[in-house]
Amino acid sequence: MQPERLVEVLRELVQIPSVNPGFPGGHGEDGVAAYVKKFLHHLGLDSFYQPVEQGRSNVIGVLPGADVSRRLLLEAHMDTVQVEGMTIPPFAGEVHGGRLYGRGACDTKASLAAMLVALETLKKAGLTPPISVCLAAVVDEEVHYRGVSAFAESVAGESARYVGAIVGEPTGLDIITAHKGCVRFYIDVHGKAGHSSNPALADNAVERACMVISELQAIEREDYPGLEHRLVGPPTHCISMIQGGVAPNTVPELCRLTLDRRTVPGEEPLEVFENMKLRLHTLAEREPGLQLSVPEPFIIDFALDTPEEMPFVQSLLAAAREHRSGAGLLGAAYGSDASKLARVGIPAVVFGPGNIAQAHTEDEWVELAEVEQACRVLIDFSMKPILKGA
C-alpha cells in the first residue's frame, strides 16, 4: 500500500462537495458516487448504482474471493454535514503537519478512502481474499439513514452470506460493538393567545411548557439509571429546540419542544416513545389547564449490540492490534449505519480512522498516519479466514 496514494484519494474525495441535501447548501452525494463508481471500474471490479431517491444512489462493488458465496462488507457514507461557520476552506483538502483538512475528512471520507485503497491494493497485488469483499458507499447517513436502509433491505434475504460488516466512522481504530439508537419527536404545549398587557386573560403556552420540562427532568433522574448498559451507559435525552410565540406583545398559544431521546441496547425506539407519550399525557391529566399533544416521531434509529465474542469481531480486533497495540472493543453514545445492518442479520461493528471529536467541526481534520493504519488493518483483515458464528 502506497501512503501517498491514500492521501491522493482522500484529498480527491474531500474536494468533491457532498453536503447532505437536508442541510443548508446541500449538494448531495452524486459527485462522490461517480468518483467511487469510476474508481471501481478502473480496478475492473463489478459495481452498480443502487438508486435510493431522485438524484441519490448508493454505489456497490465487489472484489471476488476464493469463496464467492460468502462476503465481508465494508460500508461508509458519502454525505457530510453543512460547511457554514468553517474556518478553513471546506473542500480544499489541504495537508498541514500530517493532517488533511476539510469537510468530511474525518467523518467519514477517511474511512471511505481507506476502504477504496485497500481494495485497490489487493487487486493490483493479484491477491485473492478467502471470501469476497463487498464495498457499499451509501447516501444520507447524516439525516435519515435512507442509503443504508435501502442497502439493508436489498440484502435482507441473503444476509446469511455476509460474515460481518465494518462500518466506517471515526473511532480512533478502536472497534465499536455497541452504540445507542434514538427517537426524536415533538411535544406541543397548547395555550390561549392574548395581549401581553393583560396576560391573565390568556394562557401562556411557554410557561405551561415549564411543567413538561420538569417532568422530563424527573424521568431522567428516576428512570434512566436503572437502564444503564455496560458499554454505552444509561439512556439520555436532550431538549434540542424550543419554539414558541409570534410577537413580543402577544401571549404565546403554542410552545413546541423537540426531544432527542437516546436509547440503549434492549430498548425499542417506538416502545420508548409510547411510554414517554403516556407519561406526558398522565402529567396533563393531573395538572389543571395543561394541554399538550405528542405527534408521531420524525426520526427513529436502533441501538447496536454485537457480541464481542464473535470470531468476526475477535479477528478484526487482532488485525487492529497488529497496527495499534491499544485498540479495544468499546461502546459509543452516537448512532451509525451499523445498527440497520445488524437488524437484517449482518453482524456489524464500527471502525475507522479519526476522532469523533473532530467530526462536524469548524476545522475538521484527520491524522494521515491513522488513515494509513486503518487501510493496512483492512488489507490484513480481508486476507484472514473469517468465521461468522459465535
Score class of each variant (00 low, 15 high):
T128R: 13
T128C: 12
T128F: 04
P129G: 06
P129Q: 07
P130M: 11
P130F: 08
I131N: 00
I131W: 08
I131M: 12
I131A: 05
S132E: 07
S132H: 08
V133W: 02
V133Q: 04
V133L: 13
V133H: 05
C134P: 00
C134K: 07
C134G: 00
L135F: 03
L135G: 03
L135T: 06
A136L: 12
A136Q: 07
A136I: 08
A137P: 04
A137L: 02
A137N: 04
V138S: 09
V138Q: 06
V138H: 03
V138E: 02
V138W: 02
V138A: 09
D140P: 05
D140K: 12
D140H: 07
E141F: 02
E141V: 09
E141H: 10
E141S: 09
E142I: 07
E142L: 06
V143W: 11
Y145C: 08
Y145M: 14
G147V: 07
G147M: 09
V148W: 01
S149K: 15
S149M: 13
S149I: 05
S149E: 12
S149G: 11
A150I: 01
F151L: 14
F151W: 12
A152H: 03
S154E: 10
S154V: 11
V155L: 11
V155K: 03
V155A: 05
A156C: 12
A156T: 10
A156I: 06
G157L: 14
G157S: 14
E158W: 11
E158G: 15
